[in-house]
Simulated scan of single mutants.
Amino acid sequence: MEAAIDRIMQTYALLVNRSTAASEEARAKVTEYVGKLFEAGEKDPQRLAVCGLTYLRELDGSTDPVKAGYTGL
């Protein structure tokens, strides 16, 4: 599980430029989320990494087209 979290944070750091405090907060949140997935039975580190990265992107709004600046106009 720790390898998946490290991979998530490395990939997320490439996508988003965040302060150290924000990165630590994101790591805490994704650790809790991935822990729940792991306890629920998901053991594949690649799948955990994808789910964790998706979770972080949803939290910061980067998957929301409106928050990303797309208005459809």
Rank of each mutant, 00 (worst) to 15 (best):
M1D: 05
M1S: 13
M1I: 05
E2I: 10
E2Y: 06
A3P: 03
A3C: 12
A3I: 11
I5Q: 15
I5D: 00
D6I: 04
D6R: 15
R7G: 04
R7H: 08
R7M: 11
R7E: 07
I8L: 13
M9P: 04
M9C: 06
M9E: 12
Q10N: 09
T11P: 02
T11A: 13
Y12V: 01
Y12G: 00
A13E: 14
A13S: 15
L14W: 11
L15G: 04
V16R: 15
V16K: 14
V16Y: 12
N17Q: 14
N17T: 13
N17S: 10
N17F: 07
R18C: 01
S19L: 07
T20N: 13
T20K: 15
T20V: 14
A21K: 13
A21G: 04
A22K: 11
A22D: 09
S23Q: 15
S23M: 14
E25F: 09
E25S: 13
A26R: 10
R27W: 06
R27L: 12
A28P: 06
A28D: 08
V30G: 05
T31H: 06
T31A: 13
T31E: 10
E32P: 00
Y33R: 10
Y33V: 01
Y33N: 01
V34W: 01
V34P: 01
V34Y: 03
V34K: 01
G35R: 07
G35A: 10
K36H: 05
L37I: 04
F38G: 02
E39L: 12
A40P: 04
A40D: 12
K43A: 03
K43F: 00
K43C: 00
D44Q: 00
D44R: 00
P45C: 06
P45E: 13
Q46G: 06
L48D: 00
V50H: 08
V50Q: 10
V50I: 08
V50W: 03
V50G: 04
C51V: 09
L53E: 04
L56M: 08
L56W: 11
R57A: 00
R57S: 00
L59T: 01
D60C: 11
D60K: 03
G61P: 04
S62Q: 07
S62Y: 06
T63L: 11
D64P: 03
D64K: 08
D64N: 15
P65Y: 02
P65S: 06
P65W: 01
V66Y: 13
V66A: 14
V66D: 05
V66P: 02
K67W: 07
K67Q: 04
K67E: 05
Y70C: 06
Y70R: 13
T71N: 11
